[in-house]
């Protein structure tokens, strides 16, 4: 049903993404694609994959931003983005068929592909670009928070996390219950002042982002020494070197 759950449960499963740690390797996006192309919303169709204009469905994409402060000092921030499993998910309420729904038990937002008519309205309603249309299947697809992995009892317990989390080589992604203030992810968010994206849109996203830590004030010890300009005067080289230089520049 496309109305949001009347009595949402206390559990709010979601991701916490540490922008201080992410190195922008895209491994989470690749493993997401790999797991999900055989998962709940399979396949994640690609069109023209080896041609000149490949496009396809991805649930997770990594953007890279440059942030420049007032002193002109810049830093690069890699920014993975997938569905934020909003508490007040507009993609769910706009759905005319009931294909889009938010689970009462854990807050995961899913699409029932059997009921989706492919009107694309949910993708218009989502501020975060979490929904991608599968031209081939004619239905909307989105991050499932690996619902087919996190509850999968055939997997060892430590593997029961979303594919993006288990694959991150830098440990920049965390998964857990953000509805429980004592959970590891909630404590992490509290400690690092994790924030929600575009709060002005009023969607109350569950996922949180941890800001990059401030740069160390004095970086003189770790910075490479500046290059000094090449000298060309009388004493800049030996007699032979100057003679060869004159010979070659002639």
């Amino acid at each position: 049903m496309t109305s949001l759950p009347a009595n949402p449960g206390a559990t709010k499963l979601g991701l916490v993404i540490d922008l201080d740690i992410c190195v922008g390797c895209h491994a989470c996006a690749v493993n997401c694609k790999e797991w999900n192309t055989g998962g709940h919303s399979a396949p994640l169709t690609d069109t023209d994959p080896y041609g000149s204009d490949p496009t396809g469905v991805w649930f997770n994409r990594i953007h890279t931003f440059e942030v420049v402060n007032d002193e002109g000092d810049s830093r690069t921030v890699h920014f993975p983005k997938s569905c934020l499993h909003c508490e007040d998910a507009p993609c769910v309420t706009v759905c005319p068929t009931g294909a889009s729904y938010k689970r009462e038990e854990d807050g995961i937002v899913l699409v029932n592909a059997e009921a989706c008519i492919g009107c694309k309205l949910c993708s218009w309603a989502c501020p975060y670009g979490a929904r991608e249309y599968d031209e081939d299947a004619g239905v909307m697809k989105k991050c499932t928070l690996c619902v087919d992995k996190i509850y999968n009892e055939n997997l060892p317990e430590r593997s029961r996390v979303p594919a993006c989390v288990s694959t991150c080589p830098a440990g920049a992604r965390h998964f857990g219950d953000l509805g429980d203030p004592t959970s590891e992810v909630s404590l992490l968010v509290a400690a690092r002042e994790g924030y929600a994206l575009m709060p002005e849109q009023g969607c109350a996203p569950v996922n949180r982002y941890l800001p990059p830590r401030p740069k160390a004030a004095d970086q003189s010890e770790t910075q490479a020494a500046p290059l000094s300009p090449v000298e060309t005067g009388e004493d800049s080289a030996g007699l032979l070197a100057r003679w060869v230089d004159r010979l070659l520049t002639r």
């Binding site: 922008l19 895209h26 996006a29 991805w58 994409r61 990594i62 953007h63 890279t64 931003f65 440059e66 942030v67 420049v68 402060n69 007032d70 000092d73 810049s74 830093r75 690069t76 921030v77 920014f79 924030y195 929600a196 994206l197 982002y209 800001p211 990059p212």
Partner: peptide, 15 residues
Amino acid sequence: TGLGQLGQVRLLEAP
């Protein structure tokens, strides 16, 4: 992006 407190944000590289 929520990165406003660090400075001005611009897209460096698309996904």
